[in-house]
């Protein structure tokens, strides 16, 4: 598509009913805007392409060669290695399982809390919100030894429950903070009307508030999903059996005492990004769709 054609096309969709006349200056403005947006897009998508190339290289090519360079002889074997030596088959399933459970628990629990704090009236609400916020402020590595002791005394070491609970606990503060920011912008009128109509509080929460927050819920689901999917410190520390470990451990299996197999790491990373990418694309649309759905119900 030629540049001029592109501009006219943009122009037609951009024209809003109230202001139909577009000046020449405006057109140039949009042209410049799209060039900038395009450059940013290239910068943002480059890492994925880089990772793909990286995953097909040998160790020698990864180091010392230009990162722009194409693999001389694509090493598809890296993927085979990632699959067998990296135990991806088992790890992959665990990753999905822990991520899904933790995300669902976090988002539901955080919604409950945020609803109670921002919508309901009670004296300690500010304090409790503060407690959750402060929970975001502890550096992860300070918590490892205490957490290990907690799980040891509750016999949860080498039990995936320890990892899932940690994910939920450590993501609750940030999830609640994001949700609270949004709840404050939501209109209260609908809920108030529902109270007048004699709706039960649970119905208000599940049938009115929750649907209204689908856009932000999708956002927090995406963020939680990415965090949990890429996490490995907890997995390494609290789990020891191979059957419980996750895909990030698979990545680390290629880091060695004296030799690190970077190509295989690239391949594992590439395999591991596909499900998040798909989930992200699907959820990303919910951010927009949700609003329509919410307003219909409202």
């Amino acid at each position: 598509m030629s540049k001029a054609a592109m501009e006219t096309k943009i122009n037609t969709t951009l024209s809003v009913p109230y202001k139909t006349s577009k000046s020449f200056g405006n057109r140039i403005g949009y042209g410049v805007l799209y060039v900038i947006l395009g450059i940013i897009a290239i910068i943002q998508i480059y890492p994925l392409i880089w990772l793909l190339l990286f995953s097909l290289k040998t160790n020698q090519e990864v180091f010392g060669m230009s990162p722009f360079s194409l693999p001389q002889n694509p090493q598809w074997g890296n993927y085979a290695k990632a699959w067998s030596a990296g135990h991806i088959d088992v790890y992959f399933f665990n990753s999905v399982l822990y991520t899904v459970i933790a995300v669902v628990l976090t988002v539901i629990l955080a919604s409950f809390v945020t609803f109670a704090i921002t919508r309901m009236h009670w004296k300690l609400s500010g304090l409790v919100l503060g407690l959750f916020m402060a929970g975001y402020m502890i550096p992860l590595h300070s918590t490892l030894i205490p957490l290990f002791n907690i799980f040891k005394s509750t016999h949860l070491i080498d039990n995936p429950v320890s990892v899932i609970l940690s994910y939920v606990a450590f993501n609750l503060p940030i999830t609640i903070m994001i949700l609270a920011g949004f709840y404050k912008t939501l209109p209260r009128e609908i809920e108030e009307a529902a109270v007048m109509d004699g709706c039960s509080i649970h119905r208000i929460f599940f049938q009115i508030t929750l649907p209204m927050t689908i856009p932000v819920l999708s956002t927090t689901v995406i963020i939680n999903m990415i965090y949990n999917w890429n996490e490995f410190v907890f997995v390494n520390t609290f789990l020891s059996s191979d059957k419980w470990k996750t895909i990030t451990v698979g990545v680390n299996n290629f880091v060695g005492q004296y030799l690190t197999d970077w190509g295989a790491i690239g391949a594992t990373l590439m395999i591991s990004i596909i499900p998040v990418l798909i989930a992200y694309f699907i959820l990303s649309d919910r951010i927009v769709e949700g609003i329509a759905a919410g307003s219909v119900k409202g």
């Binding site: 490892l144 002791n149 040891k152 390494n236 520390t237 299996n253 060695g256």
Partner: peptide, 21 residues
């Protein structure tokens, strides 16, 4: 066996030792 890469091995050994495990 439990197998970790060297960096993680060191980190985990430290945590395990702190709780005598």
């Amino acid at each position: 066996t439990e197998i970790l890469n060297p960096d993680q091995y060191r980190e985990k050994l430290k945590v395990l030792a702190s709780s005598n495990e």
